[in-house]
């Protein structure tokens, strides 16, 4: 989503510092030279010394406005940014959001969460679960054309066959 136009010798260093994924289908042009701006793109001309601030800016651009989810458990109500939730899962009629070792019941239906979080890189993986891609640690293909997602907290969430295609598309951004 970004194109970096800087001195070649510094290209690698800056890419790493900015934690940047460059692509041919880019919307943003990042450059240290104002002559390099491209007319039909969003151009960010920056000074190398401000690289940390640029990185924060990029974070803001990519991650967008935070969405807050409200849920409750035995300790009471909790409000948290959606990015802190590892996955949502249904148990009976209830929907739970799992954060590390904490699990809280949310009042949304799963399809409502899917719609709400579609720009936040949450993806539906089965009838019962929506996962936060950012919290997937590892993908283990299973024997039966399913996938097991090992989440950052160690939990395993299964990707059902019917959702495999959309899951793949979500990863292929």
């Amino acid at each position: 989503m970004f194109k970096l136009k800087v001195d070649k010798s510094k290209h690698k260093m800056i890419t790493e510092r900015l934690n940047l994924t460059e692509t041919e289908n880019y919307t943003y042009v990042l450059t240290t030279d104002k002559d390099q701006v491209e007319s039909d793109k969003v151009n960010i001309v920056f000074n190398e010394a401000e690289i940390t601030r640029v990185s924060s800016l990029l974070d803001w651009i990519v991650k967008g406005e935070a969405i807050y989810i409200v849920g409750s458990n035995q300790y009471g109500d909790k409000r948290t940014q959606s990015r802190n939730i590892y996955y949502f899962i249904t148990a009976g009629d209830d929907v739970y959001g799992v954060m590390g070792t904490i699990r809280m019941r949310v009042t949304y239906k799963l399809y409502e969460l899917e719609e709400l979080l579609q720009d936040k890189d949450f993806i539906r993986v089965s009838k019962h679960a929506i996962v936060n891609i950012a919290k997937i640690d590892y993908i283990k293909p299973a024997l039966n054309s399913k996938l097991n997602l090992i989440m950052a907290n160690g939990d395993t969430v299964e990707v059902n066959r019917g959702y495999l295609k959309s899951f793949k598309e979500a990863l292929d951004y």
Partner: peptide
Amino acid sequence: ELQWNKRLNNKKKAMR
């Protein structure tokens, strides 16, 4: 596994 996790990594990288 290699392919899936490469996708995941690329995605995460794009997600910064």
